[in-house]
Design a protein around this nucleic acid. Structure first.
Lengths: 342, 342
DNA sequence: TGATGGCTCTGCAACGATGCAGACATCATG
DNA sequence: CATGATGTCTGCATCGTTGCAGAGCCATCA
């Protein structure tokens, strides 16, 4: 199973190991004649460099790790794709791991037996691990954080402006004349910073329009999955004074909500308009297609990888807080007629 | 940046490097007193083993690579999740790469500069690379193939029975009384083996029911994406005698077809019943929810990883052809009333 | 002719860990 | 007391590669 090494090639070609290495890498000058002879033996034995040995010598692996909560959540799958692509164009490959939103698994990464040392850097989309934990564990692997946890400037960090994104989504609904706009996805507890930022944006939009927020219209969910979106929508529909629009904190919640609305016989957007956030491809083909706030995922991935590589090269000053643009994409789920404002 | 090595710890604790290694690994007996002293220094310096060096010495990395066409295609995302999970429980981590269905990128894997040698094994879901190419390149990394390319027994191989799966889907529609069942997704060219197997199953179902296949109802597509499913459906609807059911070769095509049907004002399943294949989560929440043939993805992943690990340990005889079970899941897109057979 | 420089090519050491064989001390046994 | 067994601990070699310093050799030039 084990292939030939530089030594095997050297012996067969009657040259030094070093010369074979030079031929393989094209580093030092080698006469054409000798190069041809060595190359012939390389071909004959089908030599492949042992990358592990090379990595040890050079102190780098050319691999970065991407850690996300769940790879089969479309947002993360689409993001992972972009990260892999961005890394590839920069000469890196990507190991992917999932934490299943399990804080212990996130912390494992920082522990003594973590495989993190095999990677030149780490892109982490954290759910529950805190900045203190990250800092405490004197981990030696450069890290870039993704997503929207609030980190106090200790780590480089790439995200959209969540407050603005939620405000844009909500204002879109208010401008359409909707006056009872619900919000699905708040997470009013320690690890729910992202959700709380979105709730803040939702409130800002109301404030800008001089409207009171009906607290009963803010429905928390423990996760951002389709089923929970559907359940939340059902609860909203059971209210005596149900909403005429709903802003869901991600597209999956929105697609679940749409499903519940259709099952309940409501028309979208005539009876209830729906807006999501993430712009997953599924939302383009759902019925109705989904209005959403689209983060620039390619840009998130590229900035994250670039920042990580800077950090790996030791070129980084203060950890940057990178804000990536987003934009509202209006589709059928909110494109219905505008009702007259009161 | 570089952390302390065994040598640093040994020097500080006044013991041999070897003893520190023994403490770290718990290999050889070390007296309690000495162990405690060494452990204290390990903690003090926050020693982390250099996994690359360990890998070099042991000749293995504990990493396998998973190569899929597109990670943001839900089927592959869900499969990747299962592979990562299966690998983790067996002590491995997973590097993921995408080929974008580009044959050259698949072949790169086998080339001289491939990073494949960094991994203990490779799970490959090939689109265009052939068995000959795989065999030709004397690659030394154990491989397991996923998906349904026909490989002539040279490589271990995990897949569902595509003919049976397609037959089950088609028969389901025929049993509902549908008589003009279309097929979307044939690929009548070299790299379309999977699609061709599904077409064969589609024909078998018709034969079993003593029905002729209307060749005009078989619509090929170059890829298995939503947009192409919608376009194919539009073409079918434009026919003078349009279908009353459609079997799509994967769920994305089916979801695209559903989208086109709704836009055209057709009722599902009353006017046209739809069946997909893959059982991606999205199909549970679409409107209507999607009848589909579900491969056991967890089993595919587990068998693939187990087979790969056997191969890595050199315990493999003839390369196994593993067939994983599938089952039909009936949902709204085909659950409408049964028409009387003619 | 001898010094100089450039071009090739080589051997040694090192990256940081582990396998192996053996050294040494201690203790029990005949 | 000699012997062997046992339990700890150590040093050397090694995994396959690359960095470094330098050894030859030839041509050039004064």
């Amino acid at each position: 199973m084990a292939g030939p090494t530089l030594r095997d090639v050297a012996k067969r070609a009657n040259v030094s190991i070093r010369t074979v290495s030079n031929v393989v890498n094209g580093y030092a000058p080698v006469s054409d004649e000798l190069r041809a002879r060595v190359q012939a033996v390389l071909d004959e034995l089908d030599y492949r460099p042992n990358l592990i040995a090379r990595n040890l010598k050079q102190g780098r692996t050319g691999m970065i790790a991407l850690v996300v909560p769940e790879l089969d959540v479309p947002y993360f799958a689409e993001l992972a794709r972009e990260v892999i692509t961005a890394a590839r164009t920069r000469g890196y490959v990507v190991m992917i791991d999932q934490t299943d939103g399990d804080g212990d698994r996130e912390r494992e990464l920082l522990g003594r037996d973590s495989r993190a040392t095999m990677f030149d850097g780490l892109v982490l989309s954290p759910l529950s691990v805190t900045a203190e934990e990250l800092r405490g564990r004197g981990n030696r692997v450069p890290i870039v954080l993704l997503g929207e946890h609030i980190f106090n400037g200790s780590f480089p960090h790439v995200a959209i402006d969540n407050v603005a994104a939620a405000r844009d989504a909500t204002e879109h609904l208010l401008r359409l004349g909707r006056r009872r706009v619900a919000a699905i996805g708040d997470q009013p507890y320690a690890t729910g910073e992202t959700a709380q930022l979105r709730t803040a944006g939702y409130r800002q939009a109301h404030a800008r329009h001089g409207l009171e927020v009906d607290e009963a219209l803010i429905v928390p969910t423990t996760h951002f999955h389709r089923r929970l979106g559907a359940e939340a929508m059902e609860r909203l529909l059971a209210m005596p004074d149900p909403p005429d629009a709903v802003f869901c904190y991600n597209d999956l919640l929105a697609l679940g909500a749409i499903r519940a609305l259709i099952r309940a016989g409501r028309r979208i957007p005539e009876d209830v308009a729906v807006v999501g956030l993430d712009d997953i491809e599924e939302g383009q083909y759902s019925t109705p297609s989904l209005t959403t706030v689209a983060p620039d995922k390619g840009e998130i991935a590229r900035r994250a990888v670039d920042t990580l590589l800077e950090s790996i090269r030791g070129e980084m000053g203060a950890p940057p807080e990178i804000v990536v643009p987003h934009r509202l994409i209006v589709r059928e789920s909110s494109a219905g007629e505008v009702r007259p404002s009161i």
